[in-house]
Design a binder for these strands. Structure first.
Lengths: 393, 393
DNA sequence: GCTGCCCTCCAAATCGATTTGTGATTCCGG
DNA sequence: CCGGAATCACAAATCGATTTGGAGGGCAGC
């Protein structure tokens, strides 16, 4: 008759006491629990692996004080297998035994080693987000939304800044893959990086932000930029402007096309000299506006749509310098609705680009694949962007 | 006579060709390389571990297509040990052999599994940064600086947002520890969390931002807030104001004391009703300023120092609403020099808080410990903060 | 020809967990 | 009182790398 389980040995020599994380529990002598449980079958265990090392001189003890599942098993008087099952719940374990295990865990302050677990399960519970620059409000918002969505599900967030450089982008992509990230959110400007395809083909879920990647299993979350710019342009048009201008960003098609569509619908003609390009920065917007104002023909535009708020802010600065009133002389609208949009004077009319929601949705898409709840073709979730009218237009 | 090494077998059945990351190299039949090398000692290897599994029905193949060090070894006709040594350079390997190994690596598209490596070496090459909110420019700047400094050294960055909540802070701290982070940067508001001590005591390097933690081995990077506020206050005093006000932040001593020191030095008296507290946000600054303006006594302050730029911006808004001119009626100064400081009108006089540099320095501190270059007591690096005079004061 | 050393490489143990196949009990109904 | 099902725990293999003691061949010196 075995009287092992449920009879947690009274733990004579389990020194580490009740500390949450014992400082030096290096030798919670595994044999302590063993000796008391009747010495039956448990004693015949003969593996020489960890947890058995008594205190012979050659103790490795690198990051010292590691309490392993073996220590717990020994103290609880069960096998490591059982401890694992108690923890994961993958197989039934008698209530009494379970209690003993939990007790041992508490006494030793055991914390599972995630790395070892990851190796075996091939799950790191970490996802990576690749952005051009976390310093940019849009991306930090996105990252925050993502982190919040993932945190709820027990996933951690790993961040990479590419600065929009293609080589950094692919470098990070393989790095992240090698690190065993469970999923990847790609919000880099140039999502065309061949690097993404590897992880995606290797079975790591990838969700892309913005770009629609031509891959059967990559999810995408987009915002309807085209529609947003269309709406804000239509708003500008209600002021019946004579000359519409636009400061577009480097290779930014959807926002441009929303603008042209609205203008065309209204039957306006577009003066090509009023269509200039900025580099998405505040300074770029400033320069672009100066370029517009410096044209030969003195006919100033009376409404300007900027492809993002930063450039709109720069544009307003240039206009102020030129002693032009906003919105009196020229109306200005932006895109994104960053914090700064309400800090400039006058407050910017713009379109909200729901960065936080994009992050949350990317997270959900990822989680649904990771949990196995979804496993089909690439999906696309499109987020609307709302027009918010303030004083600049 | 052994003719093994240097004689990479001509690889008859190394199907995966030259792909960088073969899609399904599940069975680059390990025995292929083996059979050709003379069948000498190599054949006597009898372990049944990975890489030996032929193609029997029960193939696990979770994240399929993993090329392991064993595959490489087999193809190169050497042992896994040798491959490892080639990769790490920890022991000499004959040039010929090395070539064969590299060749096999290339052909198979082998990439080391970081998780397995971490398990053995106890190094994850990942550090964690714990911040209140990555969305806050100060923290995203800090994170960026940190990431840049670490990236150079081959470390990745893992981000946690605590929202300033103590329980989240400690939760993340143990999470990060369990995940095997090699180091931790703690920039959370309440660095007093007992959670930090665990990792620190367990030998994981920790560097704290701002707070001076009372622990012998925790490095700290601080900025001289007190000095900064002192300087900016002195600047305000050059305008010979009658009534100085300050909007301080929740529990923010150093900035407050710099202010009081400067005021006292100038021989001014402080009206307690002109010392109010905001919650570090723009709205908080707005409310605080309204509180000041709404006092019984009609004597408006003529100079206000705000503990951060966000509150200064809010304060300016409140002043504009009250039709008070900045800096004509009242001068305003902030602290941090965020982007928005130059977007408000008038541009804000402030003190630059070198967030990026803080991050870089935190990274350096960490790296110096991780590389073993330094291993002493906790250090402290203090960064100066520069006064930048613009139009608001 | 023998000893001893150097150069290369290998076998086996190890990191700390999870996963299965299987053995041992107990509980039932027939 | 027996056979089968249900329950519970264990041993051993495994994840993919690193690490260390040692083996074997080649060569020099005596």
């Amino acid at each position: 008759m075995r009287l092992r389980y449920g009879r947690r040995p009274e733990a004579v020599s389990a020194q580490p006491g009740d500390l949450a994380l014992p400082l030096v529990p290096d030798a919670p002598d595994p044999r302590a629990g063993r000796a008391q449980n009747g010495g039956g079958m448990a004693a015949k265990r003969s593996r020489t692996s960890a947890g058995e090392r008594p205190a012979d001189g050659a103790a490795p003890a690198l990051r010292q004080g590691q309490v392993t599942i073996n220590h717990v098993a020994a103290l609880a008087g069960v096998s490591p297998t059982t401890v694992s099952h108690v923890l994961s719940g993958k197989r039934l374990v008698a209530a009494e035994t379970r209690g003993a295990v939990y007790d041992a865990i508490r006494r030793l302050g055991y914390r599972p080693n995630h790395v070892a677990r990851s190796l075996r399960t091939r799950r790191s519970h970490m996802i990576a987000v690749v952005v051009p620059d976390i310093t940019n409000t849009f991306y930090s918002m996105l990252t925050r939304g993502l982190a919040d969505a993932l945190d709820r599900e027990g996933y951690g967030t790993y961040v990479c800044n590419t600065d929009g450089l293609l080589d950094r982008e692919s470098k990070f992509l393989v790095d992240v893959f090698d690190r065993g990230a469970d999923g990847i959110v790609l919000a880099a400007v140039d999502a065309a990086s061949a690097g993404v395809l590897k992880p995606a083909d290797m079975g790591v879920p990838v969700v892309c932000v913005g770009h629609r990647l031509d891959h059967p299993r990559i999810d995408v979350v987009t915002v309807d930029d085209e529609r947003g710019s269309y709406e804000v342009t239509r708003h500008l048009l209600t002021r019946r402007p004579e000359r519409m201008a636009m400061i577009q960003g480097l290779n930014g098609t959807p926002r441009l096309s929303g603008f042209t569509r609205a203008v065309a619908e209204a039957g306006h003609a577009l003066d090509p000299s009023l269509m200039v390009t900025g580099d998405w920065t505040r300074h770029g917007g400033y320069e672009a506006m100066r370029q517009i104002l410096g044209r030969r023909s003195r006919a100033y535009p009376d409404a300007v749509f900027c492809a993002n708020d930063l450039m709109a802010i720069g544009a307003i600065e240039a206009l102020r310098e030129a002693r032009l009133d906003v919105p009196g002389d020229v109306a200005v609208a932006g895109f994104d609705d960053v914090d700064a949009a309400t800090i400039v004077h006058p407050p910017l009319t713009t379109v909200v680009n729901p960065a936080y929601d994009i992050g949350v949705n990317a997270g959900k898409l990822l989680v649904s694949r990771l949990s196995g709840e979804y496993d089909g073709d690439g999906r696309e979730v499109g987020l609307p962007c709302l027009l918010v009218v303030r004083e600049s237009a």
